Simulated scan of single mutants.
Amino acid sequence: MKKLAGIVLLVSLAVAVAACSGGGEQGGTTTTRNTTNSAAANTGTSASPVGAASSNGADSPGGGAANSDAPASVRAALPDAQSITTQHKDISDSQVASIEKETGTKVADKDHHSYLAFSTAGGTRKQTGAATLVKANGKELVVIYESRNGVPYIREVRAEGIPQAFLDQFKGKGHDDKFEVGGDLKTGGADDATARAAAAAIRQDAVIMQTLYGGKHSH
């Protein structure tokens, strides 16, 4: 009888141990699964979308220049540019001598700055214009150029405090023109000193642009 009772007790203990072990494993599996699911959910929430595009709009059409180095007056003069590249080119001593002889003016700075405008259409990036800054009689002028068969011609000149009637006379002029007040230019409401200083500065710049960037052409 005692032997039978001992066997029953051993069987009961074995069943209890098995039940506890099964419950522990199930609980452990559930905890692990919940932790994994939570981590996956957190990863999905915090990850950035693949191929996300920048929304700064720096190169959006009509949005102005992407190059912050370009002065505000230049960006305003090139409103259709999606980007503007600042170009620095050294004028050699021989080029300086030639420019000064042709224009009758002194080249004050051998480091010439120009601003090249670019736009993209149909997947093709192309230059749409260029601009320079010149000073005359204490005023700053923006000279906008276009290319005709590789030769730079003035498309427009802008300046504060100088009559537009005077500035409009520079449209279409190139390095071969005289830029002479009383000749191919009139004062157009500008005072004589400013008109002559502006004409000389713009002519020198046009010759520099041809020297540095212009292609060969017949006169």
Rank of each mutant, 00 (worst) to 15 (best):
T120P: 07
T124S: 15
Q95F: 07
G188H: 10
T30D: 12
D177Q: 07
K2I: 03
Q169W: 02
R148H: 14
I99T: 09
S92N: 02
F166I: 11
A200V: 03
T103M: 06
V143S: 01
A165C: 00
L116A: 11
H113Y: 10
A201G: 01
A201W: 04
A198H: 07
S68D: 10
L141H: 04
I84F: 01
A19C: 00
V107C: 12
A130Y: 01
E156K: 13
A40I: 04
K171C: 11
L9T: 05
P79E: 08
G62V: 11
V96Y: 06
P163E: 02
I154E: 00
P49W: 08
A193R: 08
Y145M: 08
F118W: 12
D205P: 13
T45E: 08
D80L: 10
T36Y: 06
T105L: 05
A39C: 06
K178N: 09
L13P: 01
K173N: 01
K216M: 06
Q87E: 11
D109H: 02
A14L: 15
D184H: 04
T211L: 01
T43I: 13
A5K: 11
D184M: 05
T120W: 02
G215W: 04
A108G: 00
G172Y: 08
A66Y: 01
V151I: 14
Q210F: 13
E156F: 05
D93C: 05
C20R: 09
A41E: 09
A66L: 08
K216Q: 12
L133N: 00
Y145P: 10
S68I: 12
I7S: 03
E180M: 09
G51Q: 05
A72L: 13
I208C: 02
A199M: 12
A76H: 06
I208V: 15
A65L: 09
G104N: 07
M209H: 08
D111C: 02
K135M: 05
T128Q: 04
K126F: 04
D90C: 06
L185I: 09
L4T: 14
F118L: 10
I144H: 02
T36M: 09
G123A: 11
A81R: 07
S218T: 13
A199R: 06
A52F: 09
A206E: 04
Q204T: 09
I99F: 06
Q82E: 15
P61S: 07
L167W: 04
K139Q: 11
R75N: 15
T86F: 00
V181R: 05
K3S: 10
G122K: 12
L78I: 11
T128I: 15
T35A: 15
A53W: 00
S46Q: 14
A199T: 14
D111V: 13
